[in-house]
Design a protein around this nucleic acid. Sequence first.
DNA 1: GTCTATACTCTGATAGAC
DNA 2: GTCTATCAGAGTATAGAC
Lengths: 201, 201
Amino acid sequence: MSQEYSSSLDAERARVLQISAKLFREKGFDKTSVRQIAEACEILPGSLHYRYKSKDEILVDMMRVAIDRTIRRTIAASASMADPVLRIRAALKAHMEVLLSGDDMVYVLLFEWRALSGEARKEIMRERDRYERHWDAMLDALQIQGMIRKDINTKTLRLIGLGAINWMATWYRPDGGQSLDEICDTLWSIISRGILEHVGR
Amino acid sequence: MSQEYSSSLDAERARVLQISAKLFREKGFDKTSVRQIAEACEILPGSLHYRYKSKDEILVDMMRVAIDRTIRRTIAASASMADPVLRIRAALKAHMEVLLSGDDMVYVLLFEWRALSGEARKEIMRERDRYERHWDAMLDALQIQGMIRKDINTKTLRLIGLGAINWMATWYRPDGGQSLDEICDTLWSIISRGILEHVGR
DNA sequence: GTCTATACTCTGATAGAC
DNA sequence: GTCTATCAGAGTATAGAC
């Protein structure tokens, strides 16, 4: 029955992760104490130590989950489309949704990477690179097919597009004036067609 | 001679601000101790206390300077252009330059606002709103003149455009492959004309 | 104005009884 | 596995001599 025990520990660790993510997002990693985490989990600090040996370990594990989730959902969304242009639009929307639909872990992944220590930071960086290579491959393919203008640097395009979305996490509120879909439409409209009425400047 | 004394105190405070900004950017506000600030300034903690009574006061003052600097340079850049479209391009470039040309204070302003306490946070938020209203006015005027497509929400456009730039601070390196000018050109090309070869989807 | 020295609080982590 | 109790260290801020 060791399987049973270890899976219930996994479930407990997942619960700690989710509750910690909410705290890290609201207060920041440094300003959240392990006592506060334990309290929010309704256990005592000593018991928390059984799930995670250190506060850093919580953060690293959380980021691993977050980046895996982001990659999985974005790839799944883009793979579901046959048309290459619609595919990239679907990937953009998936990136937006995984970040803005209340997933605190992805938010923490984006904004707390400075809190990571040496080796852990390298690991998370490698995972992030893996995600970015996926985007570059998608964009390069489109450019080779002649669907993206040749004078656009695809790496810069990726950094600008994802950057615009990542920054949304700092201002987007679910109860705000615009819905996720509307924002996504505007973003896509700007990226794909631009904003000016008269082209040619 | 009280004027003399107070202006040399101001100069000392400015020096503390600049050195602190470098530390806050590199290590983060929470991970920087007042002892480290004092050491970097080559004074002792007790002497630092004469310049600034608390660590929070350093951060708030720094953000006031940063936001003022950003507003000033962006407005100056846009005012120097007669053509309304070139004006907005100049403002974009100014925002990029003030953020990416080694001004640590502006970086701290963008990424450490969570460290602010209640009343101070409200004050900085008000200043930030003032900056954003300046952008909205510029964009709305362009749309009314018929130069920006009517179906673009200008507030969302502002959030997306400035967001893309703000996020650059997380990846841009002066010694990287692309120069500031090249990145600015790509950004402007995307925003103004879009990326697709065949329009109409 | 600057220094030394320290007060006080909070932190992350853990030992050991149950 | 969970609890109580506590350790060692770091944090900010300041008092008081000079």
